[in-house]
């Protein structure tokens, strides 16, 4: 059992266990705690998958932000008896049954697919011809490691990982030399450039801003409207 395997199983169990605990726990505050466990483990899984930037983001945003936000919510809305609101057992069983069937469906799907074959097909399709590089044509984090820079480029509209990785020597990609990149971009005619995510990024940014404004508006303290006053 390699460390990778170990860590995977560790984080997998924590993740699943945390999630399951969230489901079965009745107290909201505890649910929040288990959620932290689960999400934190997910971040671990991200690191395992060489998605270092994502892992960090997961920790920062989810564990550090969202869950805190949730707890705030709990505290702002909690009033004694309502900390625990129970559902009927019948509902629980029904939900459990459906969830089980759902799980079966997904798991069976996962096993039904020949992922390697699919990957090969995808790679072939991507480059327009069979490259013959092998079964792992994807983004190879072991070779390339740090994902922050490519993600940043992608968000700014460039895709050095796609446009260069498969056609250019890897060291060029490693250096990340701007001049070379620009050369690559200007190589132009025969090479079709992949599009980045600049527009999406902008939309998301604006979206976030709107959401923040909206949330502040919604959550602002306001006078309760009495039915009598309305009448």
């Amino acid at each position: 059992m390699t460390s990778e395997q170990f860590l995977f199983w560790l984080f997998a169990v924590l993740t699943c266990g945390g999630a399951f605990a969230v489901v079965i726990t009745q107290n909201v505050v505890r649910m929040a705690f288990w959620l932290i466990v689960s999400l934190g483990s997910v971040a671990g899984l991200f690191f395992l998958l060489n998605a270092d930037f994502l892992g960090a983001a997961q920790l920062l945003i989810y564990v550090g932000g969202t869950v805190v936000l949730l707890i705030f919510g709990v505290m702002l809305t909690a009033s004694g008896p309502y900390l625990q609101i129970k559902t009927s057992p019948a509902e629980g069983f029904l939900a459990g049954g459906i969830a089980f069937l759902f799980l079966v469906l997904i798991v069976s799907t996962v096993y039904a697919v020949d992922w390697d074959h699919k990957s090969q097909l995808m790679a072939t399709h991507e480059n327009g011809q069979a490259t013959g590089i092998g079964p792992q044509p994807g983004y190879n984090p072991e070779q390339q490691g740090n994902t922050t820079r490519p993600i940043a480029f992608a968000l700014l509209g460039m895709r050095p990982d796609k446009d260069l990785a498969s056609n250019q020597p890897a060291d060029l990609m490693d250096t990340g030399d701007v001049d070379d990149l620009s050369q690559a971009v200007y190589m132009g005619d025969e090479m079709e450039l992949s599009t980045g995510y600049l527009l999406v990024f902008e939309i998301i940014s604006v979206h976030l801003l709107v959401v923040l404004v909206g949330a502040a508006y919604l959550a602002r303290a306001k006078r309760r409207v009495d039915a009598s006053e309305v009448a």
Partner: peptide, 18 residues
């Protein structure tokens, strides 16, 4: 998949909005 299913169950069984 497990996480997903747990989430679905959580949504269906919790009466608490949070």
């Amino acid at each position: 998949a497990f996480l997903f299913v747990c989430g679905v169950v959580c949504m269906t069984t919790k009466r608490n909005g949070i």
